[in-house]
Computed example of a mutant assay.
Amino acid sequence: MKKPLLLVLPFLSLSAFANTNPHLDIYNKSISQTIYKGQRVNIPVKFNLPTDRRHLVTLGFDNNEPRAVDCKIEIYNAANQRVHNLDCRPGRGEHAFETPIAYWQDNYRAIISLYNADFTQGSQRFEGNFRFNYGESTSIDNDHLPTWWKKTYDVVGLDANTDHDGDNFTLLQEYYGNSKPNDATSFPDHDPVIDFDETLSAGTSIYARFGTPVTKTVEITPYNNKKVKSLELIVETTANARNQSVVAFFYNENNEQIYPSYLKYPSGNLSVFFDQPVEVQKLKIKLTAKHFSSNIHARYDTKINAVFTE
Rank of each mutant, 00 (worst) to 15 (best):
K151E: 12
N161A: 12
K180Y: 10
F169N: 10
L114V: 04
F292N: 14
D195G: 10
L231V: 00
D25V: 05
K180T: 15
N116T: 01
L12Y: 13
L6W: 12
E232H: 05
D167N: 15
T212I: 14
L9T: 13
E310C: 02
W104A: 04
Y251R: 03
W149C: 00
T204Y: 00
N178D: 14
P44W: 05
W149H: 05
R53Y: 07
T58V: 14
I194A: 00
T238W: 03
K264G: 04
P100T: 01
T237P: 04
I35V: 14
Y176A: 09
Y176Q: 01
N80M: 10
L6Q: 06
T138N: 02
D143R: 06
K286R: 14
V307A: 01
T215P: 07
K150F: 01
H84I: 01
H297K: 11
Y265P: 06
G91T: 04
D165E: 10
H164L: 10
C88M: 15
E253L: 02
N107K: 13
K227D: 10
R209E: 13
L114M: 10
V193H: 09
N225V: 08
S137Q: 08
I258L: 02
F292R: 08
G268N: 12
V272Q: 07
T51H: 08
Q257I: 08
E136V: 07
P146S: 01
R109M: 13
T237M: 07
Y103I: 13
D143N: 13
E65K: 14
T20R: 12
K150D: 07
E279Y: 04
F126T: 03
Q244V: 02
N85D: 13
V69A: 02
D183R: 11
N85T: 04
A298W: 03
V235A: 01
I234V: 06
T288Y: 08
K229W: 01
F250G: 05
S205Y: 03
F17A: 00
Y207E: 13
S271P: 08
E98P: 03
Y175F: 15
V307Q: 05
D62F: 14
A306G: 03
K150T: 15
V307C: 11
R92F: 11
T51R: 11
A68E: 09
Y108F: 07
P146K: 07
E98N: 09
A117R: 14
A208C: 04
L7M: 11
G60H: 00
